[in-house]
Design a binder for these strands. Structure first.
Lengths: 202, 202, 202, 202
DNA sequence: ACGCTCGGGACAACCCGTTCGT
DNA sequence: ACGAACGGGTTGTCCCGAGCGT
């Protein structure tokens, strides 16, 4: 609750912080408790005191990784006042640092990884996507409301395309081991955003 | 299919066909030989006669899944003559059947799954992406050459964005368990393609 | 034995004690972890907690078996004061109980068994042989120094022959399932030792 | 039966020749059919046509290796006329080439290797030892009969010691990876043989 | 309360010796 | 003589809980 909680709480958080990159890189079934032991410096018993199961830890690790993503990206947005600028900011922030945690975007990774079983993890990934889409949609609506963005667009559709393009690009960039795809996406989306903005009459 | 192949070859192909969906759904480390035994109806020894390792089988399964994807999508394209129509056809074919193999797009899944180790698998995924991008780029260039598409666009950039948007959308659609994201992507990309086409003078 | 050792240490030692005869009887590749599980009463997880691999356990088991051999034989020697008597004692002790561990002499067995690969195990067997030869050689030199043994012999040569005769005999006795070869060796070596001793003048 | 038997017989012999060194080096349970396939160039089915089981092949391989040993050593003896010279010849031949098959003396290896189960193999090893001892004993008796060797020795005892010393030495030489032990044994046994020979009166 | 030591047992991938149809 | 399949074996790792010491 408060920041200076007991030792247990600190250990728990430490485990999560150390575990998050591992899960993000190797996936749920690709990560073993032995890996986690090595990273955390704890023994299995020490880990299991704080989490009832590997899955519970994986969920906590995803939540942590995602909250870090949000924190970093929202920070980058705080300096912008107008909705349109915020949208450009989102695109640029993502293209600049697509992976806030080693291993790429936690949302993409977890979504793909939990596609089979693991509904718990999947639910959290779904919530994360929902959050992100909501943020974009709301910003679009704000832009429409303040006259920056044309009324004719559908916020859910635009938000969906924007997120999809970014996520698809991060996959491609990682696979090709270059940044091209992300740069192409950045340019395309920025141009697209200008296309849906209301131009001042002359 | 292959007419004069021996029994072994047929069994090998059968194993691959049965294994491909499993790997595509559960990932490399999420798929056990026991799962594969159940699906193929073979014992372990029977499987290991045809593949030296799980990894070799996984690679073969990916190659098969990807070749199926290509076959199905290229079939859909054969009826179109003009490059622009082909591009629309690609988008529509993908949006209509994003997963030619149970579990979603093999490229996306394998790219994310093999992000950690498994460089062999990764190399094949990379080659698949390269193929796809090449196909789109070439079609774009054909379109430019025959005057259907404006010269100002950059084929690599457009191809990258197109693929990224589709791949990102399939991830989102699967995660949300609806088809919205794919439909939004289809509409967006079709509109975008029209935007880069040369309009006949009136 | 060790008074203030933890439970783990006791378990580890117990595994070694149980494993030593099995390895000695069936050899390295002839011994399976399943055999060891049966003998120790532990599950695989319990065994692998204390040893990183089968090989590490095999090495520990050999060391234990050899140290037992030394202990038993050196005990038998403690009552003798003169070097010559010690040498007779060694021969007799070996002929009386050639196998301190079920399965025959660990040195012979391990030397033959590790002849192919398994350099780790081989190194330990080599060290054991070295130890034994050193002991005999030193005793011979002591005998020469105190005038019990003629100066003309070569301690390394005599030690080598003595050990070889005993080891060869234990192989033969086991193969023939009788004690003849050992008795012949005992008699031969005792006579030989008398032959190299300095007789008191009359 | 006759020398120019059919193809099957030749293949069978070829398998044995290729298998013998492998079994001799790695032992019965250390040798897999896969190893044998590699060495013989045959498939499993091809091997199993000629032998009902791995054990049957191992037995045949041992018999072959042993018969080769005998052939080579008896060849070396043919030039000597007197029993005493024959005995010296045996010692020297063994010391010169202790391993007629890669991996060391088949008798020693098989005796140690088959100490556990594998009574079939053990029986053949036992017979081989018996043969060798018989040969030495008979030569000793011949020496006594023709007056070359003193009557007071016991042929079985001397034969046993002679064989034991050689076998023990080959183990030691292989373990130490030098030839010392064999040379010490050669010298010791030759001296010993001189010691039991009847000296001409002066 | 916390963390570690110890052990369990199921399961991992992979290889074994063997049989049989062709 | 091969090639296919089998089924149980191999070593080793998995995730997890019980219990001890701090």
């Amino acid at each position: 609750v408060n920041s200076s909680t007991g030792k247990g709480e600190r250990t728990r958080l430490n485990i999560i912080k150390k575990a998050a990159p591992v899960f993000n890189q190797f996936g749920y079934s690709g990560t073993s408790l032995t890996d986690l032991m090595a990273k955390t410096g704890l023994e299995k018993g020490g880990i299991y005191r704080h989490f009832q199961s590997k899955q519970e830890l994986a969920v906590a690790a995803f939540d942590y990784a995602w909250s870090e993503s949000k924190r970093i990206r929202l920070e980058a947005l705080s300096s912008f006042a107008s909705p349109l600028e915020k949208l450009h900011g989102m695109v640029n922030a993502f293209a600049d640092k697509p992976s806030t945690t080693p291993g790429g975007c936690p949302l993409l990774n977890t979504a793909v990884d939990s596609d089979d079983g693991n509904p718990e993890l999947r639910a959290h990934a779904r919530a994360a996507l929902r959050e992100w889409l909501d943020l974009v949609e709301q910003t679009l609506r704000d832009g429409i409301a303040c006259g920056e963005i044309v009324k004719s667009i559908s916020p859910p559709a635009v938000a969906s395309v924007l997120v999809a393009t970014l996520e698809g690009s991060v996959m491609m960039s990682r696979l090709k081991a270059d940044r091209c795809a992300l740069e192409f996406a950045r340019q395309h989306l920025n141009t697209f955003l200008i296309g849906i903005s209301r131009k001042p009459r002359r």
